[in-house]
Computed example of a mutant assay.
Amino acid sequence: MSAHHCITSPSHGGPRTTWRLGGVDNQAATIEVDGPFQANTSSAQLEAALAGLGIALLPVALSAAHIDAGRLKEVLPAYTSGAIGVHFVYHSRRQLPRAVSAFIEFAANTIKELGLMDIGQRGASSMLER
């Protein structure tokens, strides 16, 4: 990866960013990357990848439509940054307002229907380039 431009988040430790990836047979890889473009948000990193500025490590939920449409392609598809989770945080289950429980049910069903948590073989995030 050191021969490629990578799109990263700003790092407090200097210009290089470390990507920790899990791969086939639970083999982990730690890769130090850098590049000419850094962005604080995944959506900005996605736009940079779509513009051809380099390789980005992005959530599949954000990038899957672009992969499927051929605007981006996966790099090292056997590796992933690991699972992500969605958590609903509320004060207590005791006397949970009906609106809160209805929202939790709606959000969980919507996430499932959109395929955001059913990530299949791609893993939670993928390295992508244009």
Rank of each mutant, 00 (worst) to 15 (best):
G82K: 02
Y90L: 07
Q121D: 14
S126E: 00
Y79G: 03
G23P: 13
Q45D: 03
L21M: 03
Q121Y: 09
Q38T: 02
A99G: 08
G13M: 14
L96E: 08
D118F: 06
M127N: 02
H5I: 01
P15L: 04
A78F: 10
P97I: 09
P97D: 12
Q95A: 12
L46N: 05
F37M: 00
Y90A: 14
P36Y: 02
A69Q: 03
S42R: 12
S9G: 03
Q121M: 11
A69L: 01
R71F: 07
A108V: 13
R98K: 15
Q121F: 10
A107I: 12
P59I: 14
A28M: 11
M1C: 07
R122P: 07
Y90V: 07
G70E: 02
G70Y: 01
A51L: 06
V100Y: 03
T80V: 03
N40M: 12
T41R: 10
L114W: 07
S126N: 03
S43T: 14
L62G: 02
Q45F: 05
Y90Q: 13
G120L: 11
L46A: 08
F106H: 12
L53R: 11
A78E: 13
G22N: 06
T30L: 11
P59D: 10
R130Y: 09
T30I: 14
N40D: 14
A99S: 11
G35L: 02
T110Q: 11
S125N: 11
A65Q: 11
E129Q: 03
V86L: 15
F106E: 06
T8L: 03
R98C: 13
S63T: 06
L96T: 12
F103R: 07
S43I: 15
C6F: 04
D34H: 01
A44W: 10
L46W: 04
A3V: 07
P36R: 04
K112F: 13
G70T: 04
R130P: 15
S11Y: 02
T18A: 15
A108I: 10
L116F: 13
I67G: 03
R98Y: 06
S92A: 09
T18R: 14
L76W: 09
S126C: 00
L21P: 10
R16N: 04
A28S: 08
L58Y: 02
E105C: 09
R16A: 05
L46C: 12
F37D: 05
E129S: 01
S9P: 00
L53E: 07
G14N: 04
L76A: 07
E32Y: 05
F106M: 13
G123P: 02
L57G: 01
H5R: 03
P59L: 14
S11C: 11
S125F: 06
E32M: 06
G82D: 04
R71P: 05
V89E: 09
I119K: 10
S92M: 09
Q38Y: 03
I111S: 12
